[in-house]
Design a protein around this nucleic acid. Structure first.
Lengths: 359, 359
DNA sequence: CTGAAAGCGCTTACAG
DNA sequence: CTGAAAGCGCTTACAG
């Protein structure tokens, strides 16, 4: 590959359909129909001339115009935080599925890999972001739950601009839109069985902030409670504070409690990291003195010391599914009340942070 | 936050400007001007009535239309692989800067956190992706180098559709577009000084694939060569194969070589991981027997055992800078040949993978 | 200070 | 089988 040369800026504007039609010697309307494949009744000769003319001039459809005319932009707004590898995986799945269908996602990011945005603090900004998407006439929206809830709360103010929505990781009893969630019940049952099988009878769970938009957190905790009860494991639950920033403190407190749990399960791998740190401070070895189970299988989990046993959420599949559901909804909008609610399997990945309970 | 209710679908279409004008009792043109802030010569009374009418109806500008009319969509195409935390950071910076300017990035992803795309294999697909962006009339493009090169190589076929481009991590001697790169010379000099100070005199460097689009890889290797020469450290360079997948083999070979280097520097933190593995296999301890320096400071670097000494690239700043340059170029297009070439500082982060050279 | 009219680049009934 | 015309929802000279 040789160094390319800066292109000599060609003076003209992009070619218009008019130019193509003239070059091919047909009317504007004919050219339009032929180029959209609606060539039903044109002679092959004509079709070919038009196609050739378009190729010669380098003409390409102006999607802004067709968007305006047809009301469809083949574009989907996505509001999701690029917070960790789970969400990046979801985003990748969305891009993959939408790309196949020749749709383009338009993503609005908040925060980054270091900072999970705390949406509750700033619902107004959320609406601004969604409006920027709606102003571009996206055909649908894939939303992170805090935005999803804001969207529906402001549905009135949105007036006639509402579009189909798919939410990720939010399960609503009120069925307000299509949703994809992880099968929390099955996943937590696997965790409970795994720990029980290793002889653990006294387990602690560090839950996340359990705010309304985090329905997964509530489901995950309840799932684990039910599963532990059914296999006969005692479970002590702690919840993080409103800010969700005290996992370290919670872990330290747990490790000082008497009797000390022989295993700790955390809402996500993030908190498992804090447990590792607290255990090191307390001079406890993992998994010798303490077993740890995370959730999500984030990218750093296999590299932890020891590698973390965790539940792998299928991020890509979740993204693909959400995009697919939204696409279906865009095609056939609104059969009210028949929203889909898909559960995606998660898989327990046993690594070295779990071992038989100390005697 | 109570469970929201599904909105009763309002029957109408979104309000048009016409509706606003009628409600306010002014002409279409007047309403248009007032709502775009071009209210130069309208009575305050009139302005207020129009604004009120728009608010009442929930009218919002249709950006497809203004895009078509003005030729500006306030949208930027971004083609970048979400491959690791460096690129995610770049993406976050782009979103931040573009958002401030009320522009929206439209990103086309290839690959995901697990798979770095190998673009060279599929330039045709690359052009397709860029065309999908151009068809939506993006005002500019921020490109990953392999795409940037393809873009300029196909500039002819793009005809009059070219838009301003900013490239990340590509430095061209031919100055074909604005570019942001890391200050490789300064960064590698810091690495050389650090190792020299610890007494290392025989160092190995594992370079990346040095294909044309990876100009950073070439610069990084040359920078380190020059820096080592100037401080008096012997440097042995190995390059990865075309596929870039043999870092483990290269590391193992290096550790068997005689005399064995006392330190290994790698093109990125990814290869440093392979070195850790190879060292473990060979029964060598880091940093006791071998010091290791990575590059990028990816998210997993601080969590490695031992935590990796590496050069932190300022991903967010790189993204912000690229977006800013592109925005400037969109405002005042094309003062040919005066492309900017910004170097962003990188910072050596000393952790526990480097120590004095064994005697 | 404000309105009527042409136009952005297409699509889509409707005629022939 | 193909063309002339109206229209999508606005913006923007150009008149008054």
């Amino acid at each position: 590959m040789a160094e390319p040369v800066a292109p000599t800026r060609s003076p003209g504007r992009p070619p218009r359909l008019q130019d193509v039609a003239e070059l091919a010697g047909v009317s504007l309307g004919a050219a339009s129909r032929i180029l959209r494949g609606d060539c039903g009744n044109f002679s092959e000769h004509t079709s070919e001339r038009v196609l050739a003319a378009a190729a010669t001039l380098g003409w390409r459809r102006n999607l802004l115009v067709s968007g305006m005319q047809t009301g469809r932009t083949r574009t989907v707004g996505v509001v999701i935080p690029p917070y960790d590898s789970f969400w990046i995986g979801v985003l990748a799945g969305i891009h993959e599925r939408l790309g196949e269908a020749d749709y383009l996602p338009i993503t609005v990011w908040l925060g980054d890999l270091d900072h999970m945005p705390h949406f509750e603090a700033d619902a107004k900004r959320g609406m601004q972001l969604m409006n920027r998407l709606l102003d571009r006439r996206v055909d649908g929206l894939i939303l992170w739950p805090p935005f999803g809830l804001a969207y529906y709360q402001h549905a009135r103010e949105l007036q006639d601009r509402t579009v189909p929505v798919a939410m990720i990781d939010y399960h609503s009893t009120a069925a307000i839109c299509d949703a994809v969630t992880t099968d929390e019940a099955a996943a937590t049952a696997e965790v409970a069985r795994h720990l029980h099988g290793l002889g653990h009878r006294h387990v602690a769970y560090i839950s996340s902030r359990e705010v309304a938009s985090q329905s997964w957190a509530i489901e995950r905790r309840r799932g684990l409670e039910a599963a532990c009860r059914s296999v006969g494991v005692r479970l002590v639950v702690s919840k993080l504070n409103e800010a969700g920033d005290d996992a370290g403190d919670v872990a330290r407190a747990l490790l000082r409690s008497q009797p000390r749990p022989t295993a700790i399960v955390t809402a996500t791998d993030h908190e498992a990291r804090d447990v590792y740190r607290a255990a090191a401070e307390a001079g406890l070895s993992i998994p010798g003195d303490l077993s740890v189970v995370g959730f999500a299988d984030l990218d750093f989990a296999p590299g932890m010391t020891p590698p973390l046993t965790t539940v792998r959420q299928r991020a890509g599949e979740i993204g693909v599914t959400a995009a697919g559901m939204l696409l279906a909804r865009i095609e056939s909008p609104l059969r009210d009340g028949h929203y889909q609610d898909v559960r995606v399997t998660a898989d327990l990945v046993v690594r070295q942070s779990t071992a038989p309970a100390p005697a």
